[in-house]
Each structure stands twice: as structure tokens, then as C-alpha cells.
Design a protein around this nucleic acid. Structure first.
Lengths: 233, 233
DNA sequence: CGAGCGCTTGACCGGCGTCAACACCCGTGG
DNA sequence: CCACGGGTGTTGACGCCGGTCAAGCGCTCG
């Protein structure tokens, strides 16, 4: 694992009105008046794989919306090891907690190359008290984040190693090609499932042997889902 | 484990202005004008141990504030077993997710006898768009719930059985008597830590043998923390 | 005082962690 | 173009932790 590296690039300023994924995100149902109240520019940013969007405890300037790629939320436990608490996908908000505390509760690291836009806290604070439309959207995002956290706990940290890996395969399906799923480094997968990387590797191999998965590349990152029912059991 | 039983009693209507724990809860910094906008009565309710406040997927009428006692949030996993995702303490809000979806995401069951007040969704929806004070409080509650969920995952579902039980002991300290901690039935503890009840029992006994804990009653529910440093390691 | 429930303890076994060797992919430099 | 080396994934052998099954104990409440 490469240590933290800040490796981001400024891509320009967002035109939120014409955002390609606007219907998924916070500004989905803002009207012209709401947009007029945004006085601080919203930046588009790119992060390379393994770059940190922010670190645990860092003072927050804004909240991110994930446009493309995947981001892991990492928390270091009392005994020093790193634990991945969730993985965020396009449309998700990164660092919501900053709205309440102006600090980030855990570290956010790009799992792939990542495209995000950063919305300043001031903008959100101002809009959320003046626009009930944004207010409702915010509630939905909070609720989604909390449900996600609970799902993560209930689905991926329960049962045998085999079951956990199978559940992860189902959770990480490609939305566009539902019979394909993308994995991560075995070490990352271990930190998500509370397993050692060797165990993860063994169980992935076993699922391939049993005909539930089929390798889609040679690096062990992409697999085809052959037998979905098997993965569910 | 006793199956679900609805066992609640109406204790009256709350006088929120003079609530004993008002500074901890959602209505902490409402002003007289805000209170004037509450047109639906807020009920005080009592639930007996093992009673369900609501069940998973149930249509929600309101959100609860926990005044006294403890409540577990239970989720049934795909393979039928029950998983305790969090335990709520006085001052916490129960069923926040209903604000966004009007449904409860998981089951809430009283771990002790419990005193709550129920705030109708209509009241919160109306107030949160008209009072930036409540709005801010809501954010804080969401953030706290999310942090709690992540803590639960990172602290209690990681490491050896011994470590998990030790962490639970620290997490469940009595706020008033910090050298005392309260446990639950071994089965519930197992559902929190992802361990079997026999393992929990063994590890608790081991911690007592090693001089880290001392039994405070004969039912195995209350223990004195003798060696805090030992529990942290 | 007896029944029943929950907690404890023991014996045994299987799954996962540990340590280690090896295979494979890829980038680098000769 | 090939040789080399590091990083990552895979596979094997072995030991220990925790799951399983079962017996026994000690509350509490009829």
C-alpha cells in the first residue's frame, strides 16, 4: 500500500445547472432563485488512485459529491490498524459530517481515479436554511449514508469468510453491466471484511472453482458473476 | 429471547419547554416562537424491557427521543439471523431515518424499561424548514448517529473476542459511575460483537480472572472496571 | 421446593490466521 | 528484445481461536 499522497488536479468550476448527474445529487431540485444564491464557486477536482481527499480529523472546507470512480472511507482503530468502514459510489456525498462539525470523521481515499466537485460549507449552510428543496435532499443523503453504514455492518461483517466475499461481490456489481463485479486489492478487501488477505484470496479462488465467478482480467480485479444464486447462499 | 411484544403505556403529553433533558435533545435551542408553531401534541411513552418501539419497514408516525434507558437497533440479515447494529442511550434520537423516508429501517427494542417522547413527523418537517436552530440540531443528530454507526463497526467488530468484549465494557460505562459498566444478556452481546454467547461468557470470565473486571451483581449484568488500561490493550 | 431460564465450563473440531514459498504481471534498464 | 526485480496474488502446511455440542450450576419465580 502506497502511503498518503496528495495528488489532485483542479479541473475548472462547475456549472451545476447543467451537471450530467444533477438528478442524483444534492442540487437535484434547486430552482433558478436557489442557484442565484450561490456566491462561491464550486470546483471540479480530479484525484489519482490512492490519493487522499482528506484525512481523519482534518478541518473541512467543503463537502464533496462523487461524480466518477470509487472512494473508501478509512478509520484507524485504537490498535493502529486501518479499517474500511464504507465505499462510496457515484452520486454519493463524501464528508457530510463536516456540515455539522466542520471536521472530517475519517479519511477518504480514492480507490480508482476519481472525479468530484467540492461544495463549500458556506454555500450549503446558506442554502439549506433558505431552500426547503435542498433541505429535503440533505435529509435523504444523511439517511442514505446511515443505511449504508448499517448495511455494511450487517451484510459484510457477518458469517463465514465465504459468505462475506460473496456478499461483497454482489455489493460491488457494476451498475452498467450487472453480471460483472469489481474487486480491490486483497488487502483492501480484507480491511472491508475483517479478513486477512490470504483468506480473501483463498475464498475468491474457491468461488471461481465452484463456478460462481469467472475472472475477467489477469489482475484479479474484475470478475463475471456466473451463478448469482450461489453467491446469495 | 422473548418474542416481540408491544408493551407500552401513555404517560401524558410533554411540556417540552420544561423538559429535564432539553439541552441534550432536538428542541434544545428553540425559542418561544418556535414552540408556538407546534400544533400537534408530543406524547410521553413508557416501554417495558423487550418491547418493540417499532419494527423494520414499519410506516413511521414520528421520531423518538430517548429520555431514560437503553434501546437496541436490530436488523435481520439475509440469512435470517438478527444483528444488533447499535445501542442508543439517553439523549439519542430513535428512528431519524423516518424523516427522510417515513419508514423505519430497522427494529428498535427496549433493552431496559424505557422512557421516550414521540415527536410527530409533521412537527419536525414544519419546524426544520422554519427554524434554523432546529435545522442545525438535526444535522448534529444525523452526524452523531453516523459516527456512532462507524464507531460500532470499527471498535466492536474488529480483533479477537477478548478485544471486542473489552471494548464493549468500555463503551457501556455508566456515565454517572465511570468505574462501572453494564452488560446485557450474553446472546445480545453476541449479536453486537458477532460472537457466540458461549464465547462471550468465556471472555467475560477471563477478564474477571485476569483482574480487569469484578462482578457487581449475581446476574452478570453489572461489572466494576478494575484495570482500565488492561481493557484498552 | 421444584421448574425453567440464563450463565458457565469443558471437550472437541473446523475455519481462519500465520508464515513461507512460489507464480505472475509489469516496468525498468541494459 | 530480453533480463531483472518488486509488487501483488496464489497456494500450502500448521497451529490456535472460536464455534459446536453438551453437561452442570445458580438464580428467580411460581
Amino acid at each position: 500500500m502506497i502511503p498518503i499522497q496528495i495528488d489532485s488536479a483542479w479541473k475548472g468550476t462547475s456549472d451545476c445547472r447543467n451537471c450530467g448527474i444533477r438528478d442524483m445529487v444534492l442540487f437535484a431540485d434547486l430552482n433558478e432563485q436557489d442557484f442565484g444564491a450561490i456566491h462561491t464557486p464550486i470546483d471540479d477536482l480530479l484525484f489519482a488512485t490512492d490519493a487522499a481527499l482528506y484525512t481523519e480529523g482534518e478541518k473541512a472546507v467543503g463537502v464533496f459529491t462523487l461524480r466518477k470512480g470509487m472512494v473508501k472511507l478509512v478509520r484507524s482503530t485504537a490498535d493502529g490498524r486501518a479499517r474500511i468502514v464504507r465505499v462510496l459510489k457515484p452520486g454519493d456525498v463524501i464528508g457530510l459530517e463536516a456540515l455539522a462539525t466542520a471536521r472530517y470523521d475519517c479519511e477518504a481515499i480514492a480507490l480508482t481515479s476519481v472525479s468530484v466537485c467540492r461544495i463549500p460549507l458556506t454555500v450549503l449552510h446558506h442554502l439549506s436554511t433558505h431552500s426547503s428543496r435542498l433541505h429535503m435532499r440533505l435529509m435523504e443523503k444523511w439517511q442514505h449514508a446511515l443505511k449504508d453504514a448499517d448495511d455494511w455492518l450487517a451484510d459484510l461483517n457477518f458469517g463465514t469468510a465465504r459468505q462475506r466475499v460473496a456478499r461483497l461481490a454482489l455489493k460491488m456489481r457494476d451498475p452498467e453491466q450487472p453480471n460483472f463485479t469489481s474487486f480491490f486489492s486483497r488487502e483492501d478487501m480484507g480491511a472491508m471484511l475483517d479478513l486477512k488477505l490470504e483468506t480473501v484470496s483463498r475464498e475468491v479462488s474457491a468461488l471461481v472453482r465452484d463456478g460462481a465467478l469467472k475472472p475477467g482480467d489477469k489482475q484479479g480485479r474484475r470478475y463475471e458473476i456466473v451463478n448469482e444464486a450461489f453467491l446469495r447462499a
